[in-house]
């Protein structure tokens, strides 16, 4: 390790990682239950959870399959939702400095939460602790509770009676909430709502989400950046200026936890 972590920073990162892992992981129970309720068996549900390991993509795939969408629509939706993980990988990779099989492991646990905790740390060593504790922690707790949810799915009865469908909607809202501060994001969010609501009655499940993504791409490519309108914190490198203790995106990320 090139930079020895100051113990308090590393400990704080580990603590954050554990709390995020527990909070996010418990939610796996609703994915397991919803997936089984959508007609996806126990084995495919676990394969999906272990191999895909990206909450948004998993819920999207199950949503499309459950609504009798085509395999292509399901794959396309899940993949598009996983696009942001590529950006996350590019952001955390310089912080981790891993090679070989560890790089594969790091890639698999590169998700919203592990990236959020990693970029929020004041020093690279703490970022590494935060990334691995969060990533591996979410992986273990999430998959455990997906299994419990899938097994208890029938016993739970209709997931709607437990409000699990509303819980999924609220989780997406909580994930997007800290991203809605920039004016441009608010405009895109409004357009996404309109496009989705307009298309739901007319096109197969999964397509409205893709249309919303296409609208965002057009806005991002065509409309020039507004003066002072900083893009979301995703691509910011909090360690590029090591002298400052404040890190880009920290405040934005807080609410996700």
């Amino acid at each position: 390790m090139k930079v020895l972590p100051t113990q308090p920073a590393a400990r704080a990162a580990a603590r954050q990682g554990v709390s995020v892992a527990v909070a996010t992981g418990l939610y796996g129970v609703s994915f397991g239950a919803l997936s089984v309720a959508a007609g996806i068996g126990l084995a495919p549900t676990m394969a999906l959870s272990l191999l895909m390991f990206s909450g948004g993509s998993q819920f999207a795939l199950v949503g499309v399959v459950g609504a009798a969408g085509t395999p292509l629509a399901a794959i396309a939706t899940a993949t598009l939702l996983g696009l942001r993980n590529a950006l996350y990988g590019a952001v955390v990779s310089p912080l981790l400095e891993v090679r070989g099989w560890r790089r594969l492991a790091a890639a698999q646990v590169t998700i919203d939460e592990s990236t959020a905790v990693a970029v929020a740390q004041p020093e690279p060593a703490a970022s590494r602790v935060g990334f691995w504790v969060t990533g591996v922690g979410v992986f273990v707790v999430w998959n455990t509770f997906v299994l419990l949810g899938a097994l208890a799915g029938d016993a739970l009865g209709d997931p709607r009676a437990w409000g699990l469908d509303a819980a999924a909607a609220a989780a997406f809202l909580a994930l997007v909430w800290p991203r809605l501060a920039p004016r441009r994001a608010q405009v895109v969010a409004g357009l996404a709502v309109a496009a989705t609501a307009a298309l739901v009655p007319f096109v197969p499940p999964g397509i409205p989400v893709l249309a919303a993504a296409a609208v965002a791409m057009v806005v991002g490519l065509v409309v020039p950046a507004a003066a002072g309108g900083a893009p979301a914190a995703d691509a910011d490198d909090p360690h590029s200026t090591t002298d400052t203790t404040d890190t880009n995106g920290t405040t934005d990320r807080e609410a996700v936890r």
């Binding site: 909607a169 997007v176 996404a192 709502v193 409205p208 993504a213 791409m217």
Partner: peptide
């Protein structure tokens, strides 16, 4: 431009999922 588009796409996807999961 790359980071801007990706971050906007993420916002759109998540908001769209809120609508689908919450209203559809």
């Amino acid at each position: 431009r790359v980071s801007r588009v990706t971050s906007l796409v993420t916002v759109a996807l998540l908001v769209s999922l809120v609508v689908v999961q919450g209203f559809a």
